[in-house]
Design a binder for these strands. Structure first.
Lengths: 350, 350
DNA sequence: AAATTTTAGCCAAACGATTTAGCCAACTTT
DNA sequence: AAAGTTGGCTAAATCGTTTGGCTAAAATTT
């Protein structure tokens, strides 16, 4: 018992009220074309509520061609999915989608190859109406795959001018962080970053260089330390250790592209007998949860990922509806959060 | 151009081969009922590939009554979604689902009220075929809401014997962690936990008590410190501070139900002038990413959430297919990871 | 040779909504 | 009074699959 309970369909509501299904659909969707008498409308509404009618998503999907579902293409590695960036991204997408009655499905992949396969499948099966893409790269193969087949919005900068893009102002962010270090008197500032094929790395490098240049200092490529792979404490540790080995004199400050990298820098510094912030000032990115709690607490740049992705989701929904989306590119500002690791605090205390 | 490209349907494949759609469907789904000549089968397969045919999910969904989508009901708060537990949970669910061609959508909620609304909607609209529930509580209102309306599996212990449940062995885990502290010579071990309406808290308390009892020590309820709300550094900090105020003599060890709580304990201890691990041994749960990197590195109990949720997803899929699922309750063992915060290390070093 | 079984594949009816075209009565306009 | 409008509703088509029932033809048995 209970098992066999038939789901209530629009037909049953129609029969209960004594009108056609077209009328019921009209009332429920509030279509402009067909007008319905106020009294009939009331009766339909009442009956729908009484019978607990709720349109089946799959039927709507078939008829309208829309699944009312958005895809989030995210890498399944701890360093990205566990980062506050993705947490906020998921939250922002969910929030915006939910408000409008849309669902969000996670297209999680282990490697880029798998991501392409997933996106391909999503486009063919039409399991989602659009996708949010993260972490664009040069010559991103995802764009030609999706173009004209499935609407998408890229979170992060992307060179294709036709592609709708929402990004945080990484150039500005890195510039401000670097300026902060410059203002504290640092002249030899290292930059620890993920490989430059990631546009985010390129942008932050640009901001770093702008600040250096505007301060009248020469740019020194020896102060750059690229990681082997992606983010992560281990990656930051190795990159900075490599840098220390390469230079005769350690830098006095480090700008790390991410808090996990910064944490690695902290460990490498400690191991090398460098005290933070006295011998080495460190600044990270993303304001990860541990940033406030590590030793010393990390100065970092907060990214408003939730806002970012809210914008992106909104744009994606407009794209799906076929509405024009302008401007194609949006920038969201960031915020520097000053803690102990950059030495600004101890200075004040002195 | 490109825009108007019609999606290829099963009808077109049928026409191309010169057979009916029924035959094409038969071939593609490998139905036993309808037999197809080997040669026809080949031609169908070839044409489908050539035309790039791919069944539309929404049409299949309407016809078969299955959306081939699983729901993950997760709280949208940083302390849970950012925890390695949920990261692994998402990963495990995604992995298992993907293997079998299923999708996973995130039903994210801000509060319990919203969760109920989401589940209700999911059941009515049939936007998913089943859901995974986390963090069961006493008299969980989600169970009666869903029972008989939408298949579900609970991750975490749940008293209802009819409900399919996958849990880590929290009793055993807490017992082992406590025994570890006892073996190090501690006699006054505090237990910091989230409110006891969460079954996880109850189980870990049980394990704690078992270890205490088996060691021949009396159970002292004064050593329990419940948090006000949920997980989080702040919550742990306040709970432990409260405990210190209440007791005349601080405990020599703390078992915290979660690493974030343990981190809060660490901060409170530091502020009170208690050195960890010398004056106070601390053990956490979950092996969060920061656990290895905080000061001192945290001894913790690793939960195999990915395995857990893989089992759960598998069981859910069987439930959806109407297959019998036994046993109803599965337990996955845990693992103690010893680091500096419990003092086992320094002891050895001495 | 007739009757039966097997094989191969087709037909048409769902699934549950949305939406277009059109009908009829009542009301306006000329 | 005829013609045109409009309001209020319905019938039927449609979305792209899956699937139970059916039928010819071929193979086998009687």
């Amino acid at each position: 018992m209970g098992r066999k309970r038939a789901v209530v369909t629009i037909r049953e509501v129609a029969k209960a009220v004594g009108v056609s299904v077209a009328t019921v659909s009209s009332v429920l969707n509030g279509r402009a074309h067909t007008r319905v008498a106020a009294e009939t409308r009331q009766r339909v509404l009442e009956a729908a509520r009484r019978l607990g009618y709720c349109p089946k998503r799959s039927a709507q999907a078939l008829r309208t061609g829309l699944t009312y579902t958005l895809g989030l293409s995210v890498p399944l590695c701890p360093d990205s999915l566990l980062s506050p960036f993705f947490y906020e991204a998921v939250k922002g997408a969910l929030k915006t989608a939910k408000q409008r009655g849309w669902l969000v499905t996670i297209l999680g992949f282990q490697d880029r190859q798998e991501e392409l396969a997933l996106l391909q499948a999503a486009a063919e099966q039409r399991s989602v109406d659009g996708v949010l893409l993260f972490d664009p790269q040069d010559d991103d193969p995802r764009l030609p795959l999706l173009k004209g087949r499935l609407p998408f919005v890229v979170v992060g900068r992307c060179f294709d001018p036709e592609v709708v893009t929402v990004d945080n102002d990484n150039v500005q962010a890195a510039k401000l962080a670097t300026q902060h270090l410059l203002r504290l008197g640092h002249r030899r500032i290292a930059f620890v970053h993920v490989p430059l094929r990631f546009v985010t790395a390129q942008d932050r490098l640009t901001g770093y260089r702008m600040a250096i240049k505007e301060a009248g200092l020469p740019f020194d490529a020896n102060l750059l330390a690229g990681t082997e792979g992606y983010y992560g404490v281990e990656a930051g540790y190795r990159a900075f250790l490599g840098l220390l080995k390469r230079l005769r004199k350690p830098p006095t400050a480090v700008l790390a592209m991410d808090d996990t990298l910064a944490l690695g820098v902290l460990q490498a510094a400690q191991q090398h007998g460098l005290r933070v912030p006295d011998d080495l000032a460190v600044v990270g990115f993303n304001d990860s949860p541990f940033a406030a709690h590590c030793e010393p607490p990390l100065t970092t740049v907060r990214i408003f990922a939730e806002t970012l992705v809210e914008y992106a989701t909104d744009a994606l929904l407009r794209l799906i509806r076929g509405e024009p989306v302008t401007p194609k590119r949006m920038l969201v500002p960031t915020q520097l959060i000053v803690r102990a690791s950059c030495g600004a605090m101890s200075r004040k205390n002195k």
